[in-house]
């Protein structure tokens, strides 16, 4: 059975975007971790993680995002999460991570906010 996590690294207004699709769980989260490390260590500590196409996330996926945030913070960067799914937002709320990750409705909204805060 194919493990369904799709990862695309792109850019929005000069900010790197890691676009995820499918399922982010204990098995697939290592791929996100590797991608985040690669993007951050390439000199892009502020990253948008787009979860618009994510259908499922568990605590391992959330833990991977927290790990990425720690790494980004070491370089004064931030992680912004784009997510509209009520189910996924609910998981962020239950775990208290809504207080850690700003959640945006679109990549453009995240980009605008990140640029405003940098300026």
């Amino acid at each position: 059975m194919e493990m369904d996590l799709r990862i695309l690294v792109k850019e929005n207004g000069g900010v790197p975007v890691i676009e995820l699709g499918g399922e982010l769980d204990a098995y697939t989260c290592s791929r996100l971790r590797d991608t985040m490390i690669e993007v951050i260590e390439n000199g892009n500590p502020t990253v948008i993680v787009s979860m618009l196409k994510v259908e499922y996330i568990d605590s391992s996926g959330l833990g991977t995002l927290v790990g990425g945030l720690k790494r980004a913070s070491e370089s004064n960067g931030r992680i912004a999460v784009v997510c509209t799914s009520p189910q996924i937002r609910k998981v962020f709320e239950i775990t208290g991570l809504v207080r850690v990750f700003p959640l945006y409705e679109s990549e453009q909204e995240a980009t605008n906010d990140l640029k405003t805060k940098v300026a």
Partner: peptide
Amino acid sequence: PAERAGGMGIPLMRAL
């Protein structure tokens, strides 16, 4: 919350 690389499984089970 900012340190939650783990430890979220049981709270999720209980909440859901």
